[in-house]
Nucleic acid binder design. Sequence first.
DNA 1: GCCATATAGTTTCATATGATACTATATGGG
DNA 2: CCCATATAGTATCATATGAAACTATATGGC
Lengths: 178, 178
Amino acid sequence: MTLQRRGSGGQGPRDEGDGTEADTGLRLDGYLPYRLSVASNAVSGLIARAYEDRFGLTVPQWRLLCVLAEDGGLTQVQIVARTVMDKVTVSRSAQGLVKRRLIARSQNAADGRSHVLALTPEGRALHAEIAPLALAYEAALISGLSPEDVKLLKRLLMRLQTAAGQLSGEAEPPRSLG
Amino acid sequence: MTLQRRGSGGQGPRDEGDGTEADTGLRLDGYLPYRLSVASNAVSGLIARAYEDRFGLTVPQWRLLCVLAEDGGLTQVQIVARTVMDKVTVSRSAQGLVKRRLIARSQNAADGRSHVLALTPEGRALHAEIAPLALAYEAALISGLSPEDVKLLKRLLMRLQTAAGQLSGEAEPPRSLG
DNA sequence: GCCATATAGTTTCATATGATACTATATGGG
DNA sequence: CCCATATAGTATCATATGAAACTATATGGC
């Protein structure tokens, strides 16, 4: 799909009420990508600081712990497909977690290039310790929102993600969601 | 505010259906901060590539153009307050735009430390050229969503941002939105 | 007026990120 | 079996980011 320009055909909305306001109909505060980015940065920053301060985990590392806790042993390629992270990010996160003995690699009989990553008991314990906190953060963030609003919000976010993916590489919508 | 743990009180959702699933009630795919981050990254990446490829602008630079187009001359501190960007980011963005003659600094009579930034004619022209494209991207992203959904989405994003800010530094909710 | 403190903006530095190149293993055609 | 190509994962490099230090100006107490 190609995004064709509007305007310049002469039909653009031109308001000349006040002197300073732009005549483009674009207001940053109401611009969805901006709102999305600002909200995400605020939330991510909050969460990232919490994981970093209390547990010495980066967000990618925490995601690794989560998917391994959920799905059991996975290779890095599987983790890349499952989460939406770069393979370099996954590689580095895994190295850090291995070093801390929170995950372990085991030989992958089926493929000598890859290893299977899985939580160690310590990793499982840490995940179990952090998870309630993560849920508490989520609960605090959405306190005041109705469950219906939250469900709708998640659905809308998924749709934005899919739309962005399609507009971008024409890569098919993310298959990551079970 | 302190986040008290849930669970352990006995009312947490505990599913023990399958063997591998963690017993924490946390699923990454349904975790709001994760969904938010992934959606934001997808959208931001799309937008950033567009501005970079076609106009050689970073997203922060584009935001500067926007707020200066909307509000007229501003100092960097005002831009920091208006957008949600670090002062270093604003400083560097401004330097780049000045170098390209898209904005100009003028002496601030009221304060010798700061200068007033304003769009040059070229900057105004570029903003007017990009704005329709930006709006087209937004339109493409939300195509298929009802206007009510979009309005609700923006409102929910604002609330998340406010909640994150309060949970974070106890800094008061962002005053950036006019 | 003079100094202590605050603020606007820049520079420096340490870290995070991802594109690209690289190594090692896999796989299929001949 | 051998080679061309693909893939899993790592290393390298160039860039982006923001915290903290720094410079220059402002402001208020005395």
